[in-house]
Amino acid sequence: MIKEVIVVEGRDDTVAVKRAVDADTIETGGSAINETTLRKIALAMERRGVIIFTDPDHAGERIRKIVASRVPGCKHAFLNEADATKGDDIGVENASPEAIREALSRVRSEVPFEADGGQNLIDWEDLIAAGLIVHPEASARRRFMGERLGIGYCNGKQFHKRLAIFRISREEFTAALAQLENERGE
């Protein structure tokens, strides 16, 4: 059984998670997350810890940000968009048990940016040099890197922030970039 309580968006997500792993969940009710639910999540964080596992879309990202800002110290699991897509629908409920287990095996913990004096391991210039921003294929490249690093897909500014928050090392970044370049024949 997973020790932490997994925060998901809805009932179908709970069903999908329980098909994959033995875990307890808290459902946010979608993007209309309320104070009562946030209090439940805070209590779960105090008692057992929390893993935020929302859909890889705009609404899921919004919920992730709300929960993480109100309940500091949460862990995060990210599902690849391709693994969560069925037709036009994107969501945890569409993922296979294997994809869910893979995402939960790559849980990332937040480390406050100030904990190390605010030093980034990967700086903005590294992102430019890697073609992750200011590049014609920056979006596709960030998607690949986000999947390999287990931090999900996001825009350039958020990607830079996640690299810092999840303390992605230069070695991890370089290895994922080498995979990207190898697969693309660069």
Rank of each mutant, 00 (worst) to 15 (best):
M1N: 12
I2M: 12
E4K: 13
V5I: 15
I6F: 02
I6H: 02
I6P: 03
V8R: 05
V8D: 08
E9M: 09
G10L: 06
R11V: 04
A16S: 04
A16P: 04
K18G: 06
A20P: 08
D22Y: 07
D22P: 13
D24P: 07
I26H: 08
E27H: 07
E27I: 04
E27N: 14
T28L: 10
G29I: 02
A32R: 12
A32M: 08
I33T: 06
N34C: 09
T36M: 07
I41C: 12
A42T: 02
A42Q: 10
A42F: 05
L43D: 10
A44W: 07
M45Q: 14
M45F: 04
E46S: 10
R47M: 13
I51S: 03
I51N: 05
I52E: 03
I52P: 03
I52Q: 04
F53D: 03
D55P: 09
D55N: 13
P56F: 06
A59V: 12
R62V: 14
I63K: 11
K65R: 15
V67A: 13
V67K: 12
A68P: 10
S69N: 13
S69H: 11
S69W: 06
V71R: 07
V71D: 12
G73R: 05
G73N: 06
H76K: 08
F78M: 09
F78P: 04
F78G: 04
E81L: 03
D83Y: 00
A84P: 03
D88C: 09
D88N: 14
D89V: 04
I90N: 08
G91F: 03
V92N: 01
V92Q: 05
N94S: 09
A95P: 02
S96G: 10
S96N: 09
L104I: 06
V107I: 15
P112N: 09
Q119K: 15
N120W: 14
N120H: 14
N120K: 14
L121Q: 12
L121P: 04
L121Y: 11
I122Q: 08
W124N: 07
E125T: 15
E125R: 13
E125N: 11
D126A: 15
D126W: 10
I128A: 15
I128R: 15
A129S: 14
A129H: 15
A130H: 11
A130Q: 10
L132W: 10
V134L: 13
H135T: 00
H135C: 01
P136W: 01
P136H: 02
E137V: 01
A140P: 01
A140I: 01
L149T: 00
G152P: 06
C154Y: 02
G156P: 05
G156Q: 04
K157T: 11
Q158L: 12
F159G: 02
K161V: 14
L163W: 09
S169C: 11
E171D: 10
F173M: 07
F173H: 07
F173L: 06
A175T: 03
A176Y: 04
L177I: 05
A178R: 00
L180V: 00
E181C: 03
R184C: 00
G185A: 06
E186P: 00
